[in-house]
């Protein structure tokens, strides 16, 4: 059964005044609540954003560290190979030097022989 009455502001009401007031209060409370919840979720999302950001950062740093660690590890190897490379180049240069030394020696000998020949020609 629905009772219709008028409130003190002469407005027609389906609910009785008491109920109406309670529902008004409930409505306001609900509004407040949703607002608060909204605020909260915003804060949470901000927080998660920050967290993901941080986690990304951490991830990056982690990778960088791993990279660096690998680099350090391989540095030993790469230095070895670099050393080998330089050694090879050195060997090459040494070979060239040996060749030039051999040539020089032979030329010196020729020089000496020529000198001797000159002297012997002068002697006779």
């Amino acid at each position: 059964m629905v009772s219709v009455n008028f409130d003190e502001f002469s407005k027609i009401r389906v609910l009785d005044t008491k109920n109406f007031e309670a529902s008004e209060v409930l409505k306001d409370d609900c509004h407040l609540f949703t607002e608060k919840i909204g605020e909260f979720s915003e804060i949470v999302s901000q927080f998660t954003d920050i967290l993901t950001q941080k986690s990304n950062q951490i991830e990056k740093e982690k990778l960088a560290t791993i990279g660096k660690r690998i680099k350090v590890e391989t540095e030993v190897e790469s230095r070895k190979s670099k050393k080998l490379q330089l050694k090879n180049l050195l060997k090459e240069a040494q070979n060239e030097l040996d060749r030039l030394v051999a040539q020089n020696e032979s030329l010196l000998k020729v020089h000496q022989e020529q000198q001797l020949l000159l002297e012997s020609l002068g002697m006779k």
């Binding site: 070979n95 030039l100 040539q103 032979s106 030329l107 000998k109 020729v110 022989e113």
Partner: peptide
């Protein structure tokens, strides 16, 4: 009177065994 030969290792060797 000078002869230059290249050895198999690539070095040049000059000799003057040859009389003038």
């Amino acid at each position: 009177t000078q002869c230059t030969l290249r050895k198999s290792d690539g070095s040049l060797v000059t000799v003057s065994f040859i009389s003038p």
